[in-house]
């Protein structure tokens, strides 16, 4: 009975999926590097978790709400962080704050476009991503800017095989869960996603909540850019490219409704681990780049097809 109740949670499936691909990879290597794989997966998954949480809040606002500017945002914030730190350990905190502010401003600008031009968020964030991308190319000058040693060490440090950044990701997910389930802000996001008109009539400051959500998503993208630059020891224009697909995919695979009004925080972690371990598995199998892309795409479409089908209506 307890098992059936556990399976009723949508996020359980994403963790099962992660476990299955990990077992497949471990089985292939004959047990070699099983622990290392988990450590590596945790360190990489945390980046998807950070932007996935931001995207989750945005998507939960209802149909049509999505942030397509995250990749450009991450790229620009990584350059801003690295330029601000300028290789000095003493500037790490300032650089992180700068990246956070840069992301928040981008989120704010996205919301301004949506509100002032009354255009769908997809088009607003798409247009802004063009401009952010150009700004990044101009600002970063296409150079790889190195992080300070202390920051790079921090981004890569592990305690008993558990990456410190992953710990940060877990704490962030806990905070997001509390914000979503126990705070007025989160309940407002859910209410707006379920029925914007009803939420407005119930006295929820709809526009203020939307503004806050887009800004939050942008800020998380900014922080992610700084951390990525630390982890990969350098900022670059295309550092955030893969997070367009993965940020949306983890939200959906994790059990959050694309129709809005229903969010799932643990699922973000499960789905992120699943995606990263999937890539690890394909790498251990030694497949070519083309085949890896093909299989990744097919598995994502397959998982969405299996997980989809909730008749939530529009």
């Amino acid at each position: 009975m307890r098992m059936t109740r556990l399976f009723a949670f949508p996020w359980v499936w994403s963790f099962i999926g992660a476990l299955v691909v990990w077992l497949a990879a471990v089985n292939f290597t004959g047990g070699h590097g099983a622990g290392g794989m988990i450590t590596a997966a945790l360190s990489l998954a945390v980046f998807t978790v950070i932007v996935g949480l931001g995207q989750m809040f945005v998507i939960t606002l209802g149909p049509g709400n999505v942030d397509l500017s995250l990749p450009a945002n991450i790229g620009l914030a990584s350059a801003v962080a690295m330029k601000t730190m300028d290789g000095h350990d003493s500037m790490i905190a300032v650089g992180l704050l700068a990246a956070l502010a840069c992301g928040a401003v981008i989120g704010l600008a996205n919301y301004a476009l949506i509100r002032l031009l009354r255009i769908p968020p997809i088009i607003a964030t798409l247009s802004s991503s063009f401009i952010i991308l150009s700004t990044d190319i101009h600002y970063g000058r296409g150079l790889q800017i190195k992080p300070p040693q202390g920051f790079a060490d921090f981004a890569n440090v592990k305690i008993l095989g558990f990456p410190v950044l992953a710990l940060f990701g877990v704490v962030l997910a806990l905070v997001a869960w509390v914000a979503l389930q126990r705070m007025v802000y989160g309940r407002s996001v859910l209410a707006i996603g379920q029925n914007m008109r009803a939420a407005k009539l119930a006295g929820i400051p709809v526009e203020r909540v939307r503004l806050l959500t887009y800004t939050l998503c942008g800020a998380l993208g900014g922080i992610n850019g700084a951390l990525l630059a630390g982890y990969f020891r350098g900022a670059s224009v295309d550092i955030g490219n893969e997070y367009l697909l993965s940020s949306i995919a983890v939200v959906v695979i994790g059990g959050t409704s694309v129709a809005g009004g229903k969010a799932n925080v643990p699922g973000i972690w499960g789905a992120s681990l699943f995606l990263v371990l999937l890539l690890t598995m394909l790498n251990t199998f030694g497949v070519s780049a083309g085949l890896r892309l093909l299989l990744t795409g097919l598995i994502i479409v397959g998982v969405i097809t299996a997980a989809g089908g909730h008749k939530t209506g529009r």
Binding site: L244, L245, V258, T296, L298, I300
Partner: peptide, 8 residues
Amino acid sequence: VVTLGMSF
């Protein structure tokens, strides 16, 4: 999501 997956 489906078409993003298909793009891969």
